[in-house]
Amino acid sequence: MTSIAVQDLHKTYKGALEPSLKGLSFSFQKNAIVGLLGPNGAGKTTTISILCGLVKAGSGQVKIFDLPQDAAHRETIKRLVGVVPQQIALFPELTAIENLVYFGNLYGLKGKGLRSRIDEYLQVFGLEKNGNKEVHRFSGGMKRRTNIIAAILHQPQLLILDEPTAGVDVQSRSMILQFLREYNRQGVSIVYTSHLLEEAQTICSEVAIIDEGRLIVQGTPDALIARHGDCSNLEDVFLHYTGQAVRD
């Protein structure tokens, strides 16, 4: 069974000169940690937005756990998916607990059940002493960790993370990656985008490199590295497929 299956996906934003996606196709197995990699402008964020139902595709098919991403299944899919956006999608003036209670309420969670789940995750992410602190007083790493908790309160089966470790210190990054491995062991599928390819190489069981709106290559990090004799790591593979030219 696949967690995500994308077939011939096209998308051109209104007013854009170039399409963002030009027939993108890939599929990820359930219970895997998959890295969706690509240079700036490759189409990663557009793909994630379509997967979440935030943006409508121009054409093509998207399935999440074999459910088509359409109006009829959008709500069901939202329940199955947790999304950690690249932005810190929290209310800065509210405390971590107030934020998490609010988002938990929006998921229909309430009462002691919600509070105990929040306390548990705060503990997991080392934030138990800062729960009552306003988010704008948090460090970058604390904000990132709270951002992840807000996406997993409803215990999704698929977690999509867009640059979850961008701008955090080594300790926070290590904690986040450790959590993702553990979370995956509990049976949750994880799709993850990052520009930190060393990090992707260590955590992902499979990667898909996309560029200019198309899939370039997909496979396990080791297999991709082995395919090219001149590549010693995932970053070399990435540069091999996407080139040295700077993308803006």
């Binding site: 935030l54 709500e75 939202k78 209310f91 998921y107 409803h154």
Partner: peptide
Amino acid sequence: REREDGSLLRMKLIPGSYLAI
């Protein structure tokens, strides 16, 4: 502000009608 700080995005990712919010 909600649009800029991403909290609107999170609200829209959560199942249920945005109209209630």
